[in-house]
């Protein structure tokens, strides 16, 4: 049963436009849609923060900026500078990317300090930490969540949308379990329709970073008809990170980690039978 109304769903959405080829026209449309549909925030690259703030003047829609995006591999000082400038331009929220490589090398102090430097530079703005879960094992995801909370971040977030894959319910459940009820969990990447969104919300996501926001909100109005049929989950593999593991896009060890989880899974037989 869907116990979610349209307004509540819209207030869970960061309406996002982060592609390299976006210009002011696209950002203006993004802001117009955010106003019309009542989305919580627009999420844009730092260069468009001031423009989006102007476009959204007088509306409750928050402007969110990304920092260290999409690789997270720049210096902490550069991230802090980006965050400070974005907040000065009117950003109310900051989505920063962690240093994925450092986390995988277990340089945990470095990662914690990296996040803390952005939290401090952001002042009153709320900070969300993008873990880029597609490059991490479950253990590393747990560590990333714990470090984020220790560093003062208010949200953890799955993905940039530029990695090997986006948000999956398994990861959201793990992140929610790790951070508890008081810290936000933002799902992002690959959320294309209401069914994807609903699956992640049920798994514990409190915010969604999506560019298909209008389709998702409009989708809710369709789901009132035959919700059981629309939301039927016949094969769990369709939203399992192991199924989307890619040797081309992931580090070898991470790819092997996910594939190893796949082999003993009881759903594998169902999947193979369906597609035989």
């Amino acid at each position: 049963m869907i116990d979610l109304d349209r307004q509540t769903l819209a207030r869970m959405i960061d309406h996002t436009e982060l592609s390299a080829h976006s210009g002011e026209k696209k950002i203006a449309n993004l802001c117009s849609e955010a106003r019309t549909f009542g989305f919580y925030a627009v999420c844009v690259n730092g260069g468009f923060v001031r423009y989006a703030v102007e476009k959204l003047a007088g509306s409750p829609v928050v402007v969110c900026s990304v920092v260290g995006f999409p690789l997270g591999a720049c210096t902490s000082a550069a991230k802090a500078f980006e965050a400070r400038e974005a907040v000065a331009n009117g950003a109310g929220e900051i989505d920063m990317v962690i240093s994925v490589g450092a986390l995988r090398e277990k340089r945990l102090d470095f990662v914690r300090d990296d996040i803390r430097s952005v939290v401090e530079a952001s002042g009153p703005a709320l900070v969300k930490v993008i873990l880029e879960t597609c490059f991490l094992t479950d253990e590393e995801i747990v560590a990333g969540c714990e470090l984020s909370v220790q560093a003062g971040a208010k949200f953890v977030k799955t993905s940039t949308g530029f990695g090997a894959f986006g948000a999956f319910p398994d990861h959201i459940r793990l992140m929610r379990k790790t951070v508890g009820p008081d810290i936000g969990v933002k799902a992002s990447g690959g959320i294309r329709n209401f069914k994807d969104a609903w699956r992640l919300i049920r798994a514990g996501a409190s915010r969604l970073g999506v560019s298909a926001s209008v389709a998702i909100v409009e989708g809710l109005s369709l789901y009132r008809f035959a919700p059981d049929a629309w939301l039927e989950e016949e094969i769990p593999c369709h939203f399992c990170p192991s199924r989307f593991a890619s040797i081309d896009k992931q580090p070898k060890a991470v790819y092997a980690y996910y594939k190893k989880k796949c082999l003993p899974c009881p759903h594998l037989e169902t999947f193979n039978r369906f597609y035989e």
């Binding site: 329709n193 069914k195 989708g219 059981d228 049929a229 629309w230 016949e234």
Partner: peptide, 14 residues
């Protein structure tokens, strides 16, 4: 807007 099991009849009338 989402994938439905094409071989299933459940919910299809609606």
């Amino acid at each position: 807007p989402v994938f439905l099991d094409r071989f299933s009849t459940a919910g299809k009338p609606e």
